[in-house]
């Protein structure tokens, strides 16, 4: 066979050269896409972030002005950062716990389990627009489902999306309805835990609680790790819900970072400023992801490795 490989040529190329050339040809679509839609725009956007640029006129170099303005002369930047962080800080952990809880319930042998799994998963298939429209109606102060329900107990519910205090909690509750996506990943993780670990723990006299903390959770840490990173990255880019339900209001109470960035780019046409905002977002995501990744040896347990 090696004889064949050496003598067979293709347009004068040997087999190894041909493998190399064909390799590059196969990945060519991605290389082109990477140059045109990733690295090229990244360089351009970094450049724009140092300019005053409105798309209609040529960009004007302003040095660090955009970044200085962000940190010293733009209260909305701080507000949008704080809104986004508060949302992420509550919705990500809450979503993880709820997803794990539901996954554990659905991992039991219960009659009709397929129906229940579908029920919990379906909402996460909806897009931001449909999801938000449904919840705007549920949260409708006078005739919405939620406040009508609360009224049965004599409680007059808040104005939700029209309330400066309750708009953000409303969006968090809404996000919990889409917990099914993470739930199903946990379910897959749970089903990959071998039974013999539970049996061994039982032999050693571990009760349900101890089995949970000493078998389930350690074996599930890679899945928690994955869900945590995806959750953080996703929540920091929340856009459609706020854009549709509140447009960032009332009084900037739901001015999410991605929304403020969009406003700068496509409503105020401050494209240079929007690019600076984007790079700050990238830096934040990078730092947070690195923190999670760096901390992972302390709490993520991969099968076949032992903690020192």
């Amino acid at each position: 066979m090696s004889m064949v490989a050496q003598t067979r040529t293709y347009r004068g190329m040997t087999a190894t050269t041909r493998e190399k050339v064909d390799g590059y040809l196969f990945i060519l679509p991605w290389i082109l896409g990477f140059l045109i839609f990733t690295i090229g725009p990244m360089i351009a956007s970094l450049y724009f972030s140092f300019t005053d640029y409105s798309l209609l006129e040529a960009s004007k170099w302003v040095g660090l002005d955009n970044y200085t303005k962000l940190f010293t002369n733009d209260p909305k930047f701080g507000i949008s950062l704080s809104v986004t962080f508060r949302y992420a800080l509550v919705s990500v952990p809450l979503g993880l716990v709820l997803a794990l809880l539901v996954a554990m319930l659905l991992n039991q042998k219960v009659p009709g389990i397929r129906f229940y799994r579908t029920a919990f998963y379906l909402p996460s298939l909806l897009g931001g627009v449909a999801l938000t429209l449904i919840w705007m109606w549920i949260f409708s102060p006078a005739y919405g489902l939620l406040n009508s329900f609360l009224r049965l107990f004599g409680v007059e519910g808040p104005l939700w999306f029209q309330s400066q205090v309750w708009a953000l909690p409303g969006l968090i509750i809404m996000s919990l309805w889409g917990v099914g996506a993470r739930m199903i990943i946990f379910l897959a993780g749970l089903q990959n835990i071998p039974d013999h670990l539970y049996e061994a723990a039982e032999m050693d006299g571990a009760g349900t609680t101890r089995r949970f903390w000493h078998v389930t959770i350690p074996m599930l840490t890679p899945t928690i790790f994955f869900n945590l990173i995806m959750g953080v990255i996703g929540s920091l880019q929340t856009f459609a819900q706020a854009f549709i339900a509140t447009s960032g209001g009332p009084n900037n109470a739901t001015l999410f970072y991605a929304l403020y960035l969009y406003q700068n780019a496509f409503q105020y046409f401050e494209m240079g400023y929007a690019s600076a905002l984007a790079w700050i977002l990238f830096a934040v995501i990078l730092v947070l992801t690195l923190v999670v990744i760096r901390s992972s040896p302390m709490w993520v347990f991969y099968e076949g490795t032992l903690r020192k």
Partner: peptide, 13 residues
């Protein structure tokens, strides 16, 4: 890991 916002403006351009 790259947020799409970073490439948004140049891609639009």
């Amino acid at each position: 890991m790259l947020p799409s916002q970073v490439t948004l403006v140049p891609t639009y351009y």
